[in-house]
Design a binder for these strands. Structure first.
Length: 110
RNA sequence: CCAGUCGGCCGGGUGAUUGCUGUUGCAAGUUCUGAAAAGACGCAACGGAGGAAAGUCCGGGCUCCAUGGAAACACGAUGCCGGGUAACUCCCGGCCGGGGAAGCGCAAGCGAACCCGAGGGAAAGUGCCACAGAAAGUAAACCGCCGACGUCGAUGGUAGACCAUCAACUAUGGCAAGGGUGAAAGGGUGGGGUAAGAGCCCACCGCAAGGGCAGCAAUGUCAUUGGCAAGGUAAACCCCAUCGGGAGCAAAACCGAAUAGGGAUAGCGCGUGGGGCAACCCACUGGCCGGUUUUCAGGUCGACUAUCCGGGUAGGUUGCGGUGAGGUUGCAAGCAAUUGUGACCCAAGAUGAAUAAUCACCACGUCCUGUGUCUCGGCGCGGGGCCGUACAGAACCCGGCUUACAGGCCGACUGGUAAU
């Protein structure tokens, strides 16, 4: 996602929080359209070097998991926390997967 | 060899695997996204951060807007001199001032290397100078010094009045040398002089004035004269001189939905007055237009209805990757900044923002340790720990400044020690 309004639309969506990041997600587009994801890394987390590194790690994780576990028509927003910089890759994978399960649960209602 | 100061440069390497991004080539579809504009998807080759890319503090290029003349005022910037540059508040060279170990001088002071300086004007004006101190600027007098024709005492002339000499004390008197306060006390040192003192006088130092000489200049220097007048602060107001349009790539150009506004034409006949049947013409008045004001000149605008048209917003493409104040390098000129000229080269282009990750080996530093050597603290060679390898990410492009930075390399200067 590249537009600010896409991010704002997910502010009230279902959210999963952990030490590494917070993830929001919801069904926003048609059933057959692509999965979309956006990353929020604020200036509080560090300088440009640190922020770029966090975004690269999160992209690597989502590229590994989303093709399998992501749902078409869903938008996701990942808000990074400082711990995401130094966390083990395996921990990131686990938390990311848990977050997706949490968001997808009870999706028939909303 | 050691220590210090100043300046310049570099700022990890090689390989493998997996990714990201751009360009080019090939391939591909009645494909996918989108109303459109436009974009996405495959394979291969090649390219892919910095010395500060940072802060966004100056100066330019570039883009758009504005830009009639004159005068005054205001605002902002700059501020020793010369040179460099596209330009600068930058750079180079010089001058001056301040600091400054050794040294010179009785002293005041002078003072090479090196460091620092927003370094025009304080003998136009105004303001300010805390605390302390008597006094902070038309000087003044706390302690202090002097001291009569005054007071008191002694001695003498003659017992007294009175007079003379000496000592002490003192002022509505003289002084500012010494003490004390302060960041700063109205030239300094030495001598003469005096009741005590004082540029009161003299010598030297400092200062000022006009002059000679040297220098493009800032300025320096020489003698003469003056006789000390002129405390500091302009990064307080101010004065003087010089210079100065605005906004920025979210600039700007092109393509281009919805909705709301805009323009043109027609109708109606519109701020005031006059003419005309009317269209319209003339005059006057008002609003708006440059930082402000004045003046001359100029431009522009005014209600309602209908029809038609096109620009702009969201979004997209270009701008934007390249012949450029370009890079590498040689020669020449110059103390230098820099300039001239020859040869070779063409080098990231993202936009929720690529340039990375993992592993192996090496490199450097550090710690532990073995060993050789000598001037006994280093240096050389070897092994290990796996500890450390910074600051930091282009965002239209250049020139500077400032700030951050693990570690390393080179050069110059000064001083010390040893040897020749």
């Amino acid at each position: 996602m590249k537009k600010r309004r896409d991010f704002l639309r997910l502010r009230k969506a279902k959210t999963y929080k952990c030490k590494l990041f917070a993830m929001s997600g919801g069904k926003e587009t048609a059933e057959n359209s692509n999965i979309r994801i956006g990353y929020t890394v604020t200036t509080k987390l560090g300088n440009a070097i640190v922020r770029n590194r966090i975004k690269r790690r999160l992209r690597a994780v989502s590229a590994a998991i989303l093709p399998e576990k992501g749902l078409h028509g869903f938008d996701y927003v990942v808000i990074a926390r400082r711990a995401a910089l130094r966390a083990e890759y395996a921990d990131l994978i686990n938390e990311f997967s848990t977050a997706l399960d949490h968001i997808h649960k009870n999706r028939s209602k909303g």
